Simulated assay, not measured.
Amino acid sequence: MVRVGDRMVLYSIYGDEDGLPALSFGGTPSTRWKRPDAVAAIESSGLRVATPDRPGYGGSTRQPGRTVASVVEDAVAVADALGWGRFAVTGGSGGGPHALACAALLPERVTRCAVIGSNAPPIVDGPEPTEEEELADPRRNRTSWLAVHGDLRPGLEETTRAIMAAVEAGGPEIPPQPGAEPGPPAREDAAAMARLDATFVTSHDGWLDDHLAFAAPWGFELGDIKVPVSLWHGSADERAGKYVDILAAAMPHAERKYYVGGHIPPANAYRELLRWLTLS
């Protein structure tokens, strides 16, 4: 735990004590606790990975009005507490914009930036987007529009009820990869249930504030990023592929990385992403 002003930022550490430093930003929603398959990949990667909880998640103090760029202050605090001068950054899904913020605003400290299934700045002007508009361009999505023009919290609560009902009915912790069998019932694994509870049940504040931040100006320009960037997405994740098109157009130097799978990367893809972060 580190203090940033009057806030507490909680984080976990994984991997080799002497490994190359990296900060990993979780999705929206998620917490600092990695699943066993991710921990195993990190432990074999040669990296030392810190996973901070953004404000409102996992016990980190809420920060109303935070922007995507606000994460940089927390990233610096964690890195300084660990004695890291230089470090890589990565982020999955809603963690992607936060990793990109560090790459843009900390060019003297960030070595590489890998994002997977990341979203791009949304378009929130005009009337509520239709389903057809969202399918054509994911920047025109109802979630971001509601963050500006409505109230997201009832929808987050409804999503939570659906997810936890499926878990109680015997569902796995995460959806299976396309074509794969579901994992074991999460309700039979105390650690899995703890992760699910922390992510979906304990508080929706971090989840809500992430979406509010995505829908507001991010606080940096994607085109200002100069450090090496890789943009990853799965073959079955059409929405993320469209976001990659947008991000790549804004960052012509970024590498596009494609893997077979869905929004949550399979172990082999995650290992490859971690390996990319170690390249000089």
Rank of each mutant, 00 (worst) to 15 (best):
Ala169Tyr: 05
Phe220Asp: 02
Ala267Gly: 12
Ser12Lys: 13
Val89Gln: 03
Val49Ser: 00
Leu47Val: 04
Gly117Phe: 05
Pro129Met: 15
Glu134Ser: 15
Val229Met: 06
Leu208Glu: 11
Asp205Pro: 02
Ala165Ile: 02
Asp197Asn: 08
His211Pro: 02
Arg7Asp: 04
Arg66Ser: 09
Thr31Met: 11
Asn268Gly: 06
Val39Asn: 02
Gly85Glu: 00
Glu188Ala: 03
Trp84Leu: 01
Leu135Asp: 09
Pro266Phe: 00
Val9Ile: 15
Asp209Ser: 10
Gly19Ala: 11
Val71Ala: 13
Asp37Gly: 07
Pro107Phe: 12
Glu17Ile: 12
Ala38Val: 10
Lys242Ser: 05
Glu108Ala: 13
Glu132Trp: 08
Gly183Phe: 10
Glu181Asp: 14
Gly234Cys: 01
Thr130Cys: 05
Arg32Val: 11
Ala81Leu: 02
Val4Arg: 15
Phe200Gly: 00
Ser235Lys: 00
Pro127Trp: 11
Glu181Cys: 03
Glu158Arg: 04
Trp84Asn: 00
Asp237Gly: 01
Pro176Gly: 13
Pro172Cys: 15
Gly5Ser: 10
Ala38Ile: 11
Leu196Ser: 08
Pro52Trp: 13
Arg62Cys: 14
Gly155Phe: 05
Gly5Ile: 13
Pro122Ser: 05
Gly94Trp: 07
Asp224Gly: 09
Ile42Gly: 00
Cys102Asn: 08
Glu134Pro: 14
Met8Arg: 15
Arg109Gln: 02
Pro182Leu: 13
Gly65Thr: 07
Leu222Met: 14
His233Asn: 14
Trp33Ala: 06
Phe214Lys: 03
Asp18Thr: 06
Leu105His: 04
Thr160Gln: 12
Tyr243Ile: 06
Val9Gln: 12
Ala191Tyr: 12
Glu168Ala: 09
Leu231Ile: 09
Ile13Gln: 05
Gly85Phe: 01
Leu10Gln: 15
Asp209Val: 08
His233Ile: 02
Arg271Tyr: 05
His98Ala: 01
Met251Asn: 12
Ile225Met: 05
Cys102Trp: 04
Leu231Cys: 14
Lys257Ser: 10
Glu238Lys: 05
Gly27Lys: 04
Leu82Thr: 02
Phe214Met: 04
Arg3Met: 09
Phe214Tyr: 08
Ala166Pro: 07
